[in-house]
Write a protein that binds this DNA or RNA. Structure first.
Length: 468
RNA sequence: GGCGGCGUGGCCAAGCGGUCUAAGGCGAAGGUCUGCAAAACCUUUAUUCAUCGGUUCGAAUCCGAUCGCCGCCUCCA
């Protein structure tokens, strides 16, 4: 299995430190607002990566941090006359709700910055004792010059950065590249006590402190958006390796941006949709299919047209799942070996092993759907064993890995037995009309049911219905 | 200025030295089935991979140049 490692700028064989255990850290949200669909792409692609590792038999510990203290939070709290923790609590809940709606597996731990002050302080102290940090009257900075590997992730060298950079001028820094570990509190700002005086953590230190605490000094995979490579991840390396002297991360994975009209979707440009609004109009599975259909590392130009077409593609898969369920319900006994399922598993694993090539995995999914459908068309009375195998394949790949299909959900046609009986009554009446060649009435019944969201399907064995 | 990425059919998008006259999705056209639909299936829809050169027996894939687009270097997934 291969993963493209940003640190090495090439695909590498995936060899976790302590197989079958895999430690996986992803940068989560700053909970000052709803996250947008671009953020969702990173969360979903990390989720699919994780799910595939589980599929492969790894025992994955997955940690996603929640940044619940920072400038934006304080600003929002001030604007709304609330405390920062009220704001954080509101958006943390919203985040967890939206994540669930997107069918993203819950992380094993969602550590919060405010709950790790102890770890953050002691990490800074460690850096101080190793002379990698210095205190200037209450502000503590990281001394970038003291860390040899600085720039190894982003491919930047400190000299270039110094020349062209638009880095804020800060007289107290020894070097403009030095970044804040501990920020001295201003008046009326939330603050925590420390040996340097009251203040709060800098922008990057929480990730170092929390990943070390929950996953150990060296973690297998660390993922995040492309825009985090510099400075965030670069600084995390400096902090963690500066303190432990050990390699911080084996494999760095970075997700491409979601663009709108070829521009990065971002809060500051204002060209974003929140995941929430998108979820009101489209299924989570459609979003996941759309994201699966392009590789995680490249850009994806987002538009509603694309989502529409993903929704159509998903519909094809959902119809297929229904067909499978119907076939299964037929309960025809017997063995079945005339269809080679194993080749699809092989192909699926082959492409996913190659740096999580979900576009090809999705293509295999559609091939499978077509081939099985074709097999159904060409062979009458297939036994349940055949459908069972088809179902297992879909559950394992499209279901458990890509998260675009759910067999349980498609079964709940009839949560209301009165409703069910009424629909079946109408179907019977329509059948009578059809028998009388009263197609006008038959079509009227079908059309009216359709406008209520109930779609009828005639087949040789009778009429079935589904709710849209 | 430094660093990185991208340009493949009407749209999206894989492939990254031979199996490519290029996967898959959406769309479009025709057909099978059906009373008509729906679903499903079949056929067609790029001899070509931004352009121009080069390397090679062989290039969408490697190298160089050109044009166009984007990102990071400041909070950002």
């Amino acid at each position: 299995m291969k993963i493209y490692n940003t640190l090495k700028r090439k695909k590498e064989n995936f060899e976790p430190s302590n197989p079958p255990k895999v430690t996986f850290y992803t940068c989560g949200p700053t909970v000052y607002d709803y996250f947008h669909i671009g953020n969702a792409r990173s969360f979903i692609m990390a989720d699919i990566t994780r799910r595939y590792l589980i599929y492969k038999g790894y025992d994955v510990k997955f940690v996603m941090n929640i940044t619940d203290i920072d400038d934006k939070l304080i600003k929002k709290a001030n604007e709304q006359g609330r405390t920062f923790s009220e704001v954080a609590a509101e958006y943390t809940k919203a985040f967890l709700d939206d994540i669930e709606k997107l069918k993203i597996k819950k992380a094993d731990v969602y550590p919060k910055a405010t709950e790790h002050m102890e770890e953050i302080r002691s990490l800074i102290e460690k850096l101080e004792s190793r002379e990698r940090a210095y205190n200037v009257s209450g502000d503590v900075f990281y001394d970038v010059k003291k860390f040899e590997g600085y720039g190894k992730l982003s491919g930047k060298n400190t000299d270039d950065l110094e020349v062209g950079a638009r880095i804020e001028l800060n007289e107290s820094k020894r070097n403009p590249l030095d970044f804040t570990l501990w920020k001295k509190a201003k008046e009326n700002e939330p603050a925590w006590e420390s040996k340097w005086g009251s203040g709060r953590p800098g922008w990057h230190i929480e990730c170092s402190a929390m990943s070390t605490k929950h996953l150990g000094d060296t973690i297998d995979i660390h993922a995040g958006g492309n825009d985090l490579i510099f400075p965030h991840h670069e600084n995390e390396i400096a902090q963690t390796e500066g303190a432990t002297g050990k390699p911080f991360v084996k494999y760095w994975m970075h997700f491409g941006f979601l663009n709108i009209q070829n521009e990065k979707m971002s809060k500051s440009l204002g060209n974003f949709f929140t995941a929430r609004e998108i979820l009101k109009k489209y299924r989570a599975e459609s979003i996941r299919l759309l994201f699966s259909q392009s590789h995680y590392s490249g850009p994806l130009n987002f538009s509603e047209e694309l989502l529409e077409s993903a929704e159509k593609g998903l519909q094809k898969i959902r119809n297929f799942v229904e067909n499978i369920n119907e076939g299964l319900a037929g309960n025809i006994p017997g063995e079945y070996t005339k269809f080679d399922f194993t080749q699809y598993y092989q192909q699926f694993e082959e492409v996913m092993d190659d740096d999580f090539d979900t576009p090809r995995a999705a293509a295999i999914m559609f091939d499978f759907v077509r081939d099985v459908n074709k097999h159904i068309v060409e062979n009458d009375n297939l036994p349940a064993a055949f459908y069972q195998q088809a179902k297992i394949f879909m559950e394992k790949t499209a279901g458990e890995v890509l998260g675009i299909v759910s067999f349980d959900e498609s079964k709940d046609n009839s949560n209301n037995s009165l409703e069910k009986e009424l629909i079946e009554l109408l179907i019977r009446l329509r059948q009578e009309a059809k028998n009388d060649k009263n197609y006008q009435l038959a079509d009227k019944i079908r059309d009216e049911l359709k406008s209520l969201g109930i779609v009828l399907k005639d087949s040789k064995t009778g009429t079935t219905y589904k709710k849209e």
